Computed example of a mutant assay.
Amino acid sequence: MYLEAGQLCFPGNWSLVFKLGMTFHEIHEPVPRFKEKGVANRFCAQARGFRLRCMGKGNRRSR
């Protein structure tokens, strides 16, 4: 998953031009304890499932 576009309302020393083209893990690498707690892996798994559902290839919940 790569950053392809974005909008910053409150950048706080964050450069969209610098981050453009980086992977999710590369962008969040400097965040303390981000890898240790497994947040990145959970987010990527959820995002992957969301993308598959949007493309009609994943399991959908029935109402």
Rank of each mutant, 00 (worst) to 15 (best):
V39T: 15
F43S: 12
T23E: 06
S62R: 02
W14T: 12
V17Q: 09
L3G: 02
A47S: 07
E4Y: 03
Y2Q: 13
H28T: 15
G56V: 00
R63H: 08
L52E: 07
G6R: 01
F43Q: 13
H25K: 15
G6D: 12
N41A: 10
R61P: 08
L16F: 03
L8W: 03
Q46L: 01
L20Y: 10
M55A: 10
G12Y: 14
S62N: 10
F24I: 08
G58V: 02
G21N: 10
R42W: 03
V39Y: 15
G12M: 11
H25I: 14
E36N: 11
A47N: 05
N13I: 07
K35I: 11
Q46G: 01
F50Y: 14
G49M: 04
E36L: 06
G38D: 14
Y2A: 09
R51T: 14
K19C: 07
C44P: 02
A45K: 01
E26D: 12
N13A: 08
R60M: 04
K57I: 09
I27K: 08
A40Q: 12
R51A: 12
H28F: 13
G38Y: 09
S15F: 00
P11W: 00
K37L: 06
S62K: 04
R63F: 03
K37F: 01
T23M: 00
K37M: 04
M1A: 09
K57H: 06
C44R: 02
P30T: 06
R61A: 14
Q46T: 11
A47V: 11
H25F: 05
P32G: 11
N41E: 14
N59K: 15
M1H: 07
A45R: 00
F24T: 07
V17M: 02
W14S: 09
V39A: 12
L16C: 07
W14H: 04
G58T: 02
I27N: 06
P11F: 00
C54F: 11
Y2P: 04
F34H: 10
T23N: 05
I27W: 07
K35R: 08
A45Q: 08
Q46E: 08
M55F: 06
P32V: 11
G49W: 01
R61S: 14
M55P: 02
V31M: 09
E26F: 00
R61K: 05
F24Y: 04
R63C: 09
F34C: 14
M55C: 03
T23D: 05
